[in-house]
Amino acid sequence: MSILLVGLGHPDRGDDAVGSTVLRSLAAEGGVDADGPGDDVRILVLVDPVDLPLRWAGAEWVVVIDAVLTGAAPGTITVAELGESDPGEQIWSRLGLGGSHAFGLGEAVALSRALGRMPQRLTLVGVEAADVTAGAGLSPAVAEAVPRAVARIRDLVSRERIGAGDVPR
């Protein structure tokens, strides 16, 4: 299976950097292949969500790691599968709006659907943000969540590989 891990968000905008931080941390630990060889796994750190429809086309499974604002405690990790009637859908529409012209992940999904460029499966690993001030680093709660998010991604990928069924919602 071809898997694309996307760390979305601006690296210099407080907790918005969590996507790229998690993927860098994962890569520093040897990537998901540390758990076993096999699939074609690509890692992509992306600032501009407008590029997503072209970037993720062709991948069978895309996992997007991004900062989210759902009202949960900062550092809380939410995993959502994009499905036709999934409650996660509500989250998508409010994500990644740091992109220009209010083009975020929700718009990237809508545009990809219209263009027939959606990956077969799309999973969000959202980390609840506390502060997205430009120039600030990760807040303590989100920095603490980084290793947990890395572990969660490893878990998602290994479950997929051993055919352990659906991703925990």
Partner: peptide, 8 residues
Amino acid sequence: IEMAADHP
């Protein structure tokens, strides 16, 4: 997004 369906 609306345009994409007709003019991909």
